[in-house]
């Protein structure tokens, strides 16, 4: 897997809190057995007026011409709450998003993003307010998300974000998490040997 360091792109504003993973990718699209092909169903209920995805909802931000080609999703608090379905980051990634900027994220979703090289950026609500203002006023504003320096730059404004060091390293290096753990085989085996017999 290749890593992420810096991403430059435009953002689409999804101005709502508590967007759950059922909304990101509804259950009827969880029937696949592969990781690909979920992007066309992303935000299905909001994005399409019909069940067959023939009539785009003109009011939904992802369907608006001024936000076409956006690779950054800008949203509010508790994004990705609810179901643990990894289909949610798969769908966002497949649609073309590289970064999600929100006030906060639900725990499982956040981890799923990291494991899929989709960068979750949590910013203070005042910073999020400013970004919404910028993006609504000037949709073609290019934002620069710099992971090593932990900054989001939009126009002349720069916002600093926090990310755990190990998440940062994994995203930048694009590491194979399983491969890394398998190198600790001896320690895992030693752990197993000292547990209660009835737990083995």
């Amino acid at each position: 897997m290749t890593g992420i360091t810096q991403h430059t792109g435009t953002a689409v504003p999804l101005d709502q809190a508590n967007i759950d993973t059922d909304q990101i990718i509804p259950k009827q699209f969880l029937k696949g057995v592969t990781r690909s092909g979920y992007g066309k169903h992303l935000f299905h209920d909001w994005r399409y007026l019909d069940l067959h995805e023939q009539e785009p909802n003109p009011d939904f931000p992802l369907n608006k011409a001024e936000y076409a080609g956006a690779s950054i999703l800008l949203t509010r608090e508790n994004f990705g709450c609810g179901s643990s379905r990894e289909h949610a980051p798969w769908a966002l990634d497949d649609f073309g998003f590289k970064v999600v900027i929100a006030t906060s994220f639900a725990d499982i979703f956040y981890g799923n993003c990291i494991n899929n090289q989709l960068l979750p950026v949590a910013l203070a609500s005042s910073a999020i307010d400013s970004l919404f203002e910028i993006v609504k006023l000037k949709p073609d504003t290019e934002m620069v998300v710099d992971l090593p320096n932990q900054t989001v730059t939009a126009g002349d404004q720069v916002f600093k974000f926090d990310i755990a060091e190990h998440h940062k390293t994994n995203l930048i290096k694009g590491l194979d998490a399983i491969g890394q753990t398998l190198e600790l085989e001896e320690k895992i085996a030693a752990y197993e040997n000292q547990t209660f017999a009835w737990m083995r």
């Binding site: 379905r85 990894e86 980051p89 799923n112 494991n115 190990h166 399983i178 753990t181 600790l184 197993e192």
Partner: peptide
């Protein structure tokens, strides 16, 4: 606790997970 599919794969292969303490 609930996990994503990449973590399911990690548990399959290693019977462990890398976690930050909540």
């Amino acid at each position: 606790f609930g996990i994503g599919t990449s973590q399911v794969e990690h548990v399959f292969a290693t019977q462990t997970l890398k976690q930050s303490k909540a």
